[in-house]
């Protein structure tokens, strides 16, 4: 049935319009909530979105098992996932770029170095250091400052190093799972995939602990100047992606354990999730180097 000449074009589908409504309610609800309104719309939207995704993926899985999906169609999914990950890379690039700009240009200028060093006239007493423990505001206004720096920062060689080991290991375990899947060894696959999910959850646990430490003991918050800003935005968006990746892998695990999905030669759902996992892993390596190690 699957041949080049019969690309499966689904008949009409209600999924997209419901997905639209879900996405719209989520976005509108988030804006409304952040602006001080109620959070109901956001949660209704997010729930609707999750429901639609459930049914959408179920439909795709059903079609695939019914043999409707040609190799050509599967290549479309491969292209789709690949370029989606690339778009995520560019999203992180914006934040890494911001960090680079701040450290290479903005802070030296504020501290009186380089082409726009005159700027220091406005922030007399401010010195360019990284991590930025004393913000320009604090350097000028002392106790009256609105934006003060952190008391201390996260030591890269404790929790972050542990998390690096955890995440790197999880990339290996998900790869091993993949190898077993291709050999048709379902139990081993389930075991290694389950291990990966556990490592993902462990990473998130330590990340939460690190944030707790930062907020409660170190005075390192989103509001503690540009160091806290870049630190939390980069690690926070990464954490959100790890959460999503863990959920994706967990669903793959459940599909395998409960529904016995995936064949040795046909398991793109899992493969896409594992690519995503490798991607968040690579981002973490970048974070560990540029945010933690070079940032301390």
């Amino acid at each position: 049935m699957a041949s080049e000449s019969s690309y499966y074009v689904p008949e009409q589908s209600r999924l997209p319009i419901f997905a639209t409504i879900g996405l719209f309610l989520t976005a509108f609800g988030a804006a409304n909530w952040i602006n001080g309104g109620s959070s109901y719309i956001f949660f209704i939207g997010a729930l609707a979105m999750a429901g639609v995704l459930w049914f959408w993926f179920a439909a795709v899985i059903r079609e695939n098992m019914a043999g409707l999906n040609s190799d050509q169609l599967k290549r479309s999914y491969v292209w789709g996932m690949g370029w989606f990950i690339f778009s995520e890379v560019m999203f992180f690039a914006a934040f890494f770029g911001a960090l680079y700009y701040i450290r290479t240009f903005a802070l030296p200028w504020l501290g009186g170095e380089g082409d726009r060093g005159e700027s220091n006239m406005l922030w007399q007493g401010f010195e360019n250091t990284w991590p930025l423990m004393v913000t320009p505001d604090a350097a000028v206004h002392g106790d009256a400052a609105k934006v003060v720096g952190p008391n201390d920062i996260i030591d890269p060689w404790h929790l972050p190093l542990l998390n690096t080991v955890i995440l790197l290991t999880s990339s290996v375990t998900v790869h091993i799972a993949h190898v077993f899947l291709k050999k048709g060894k379902r139990n081993a696959f389930n075991l290694w995939l389950g291990l990966t999910v556990l490592l993902g959850a462990l990473f998130l646990f330590f990340q939460v602990e690190e944030y707790y430490e930062a907020y409660v003991h170190l005075g390192l918050t989103l509001e503690s100047g540009i160091y806290g800003t870049t630190f939390f935005m980069l690690t926070g968006f990464h954490g959100a992606h790890v959460t999503l990746g863990t959920i994706m892998l967990l669903i793959m695990l459940l599909r395998s354990v409960i529904a016995h999905h995936f064949k040795p030669d046909d398991h793109f759902g899992f493969e896409a999730s594992s690519w995503y996992w490798h991607f968040v892993d690579v981002v973490w390596v970048g974070l560990f180097i540029f945010v933690y190690v070079l940032g301390s």
Binding site: L110, R116, E118, S119, M121, L122, P136
Partner: peptide
């Protein structure tokens, strides 16, 4: 020249 809050251009 742009006049930018917190910075000085000349």
């Amino acid at each position: 020249k742009d006049a930018i809050p917190g910075f000085i251009n000349d």
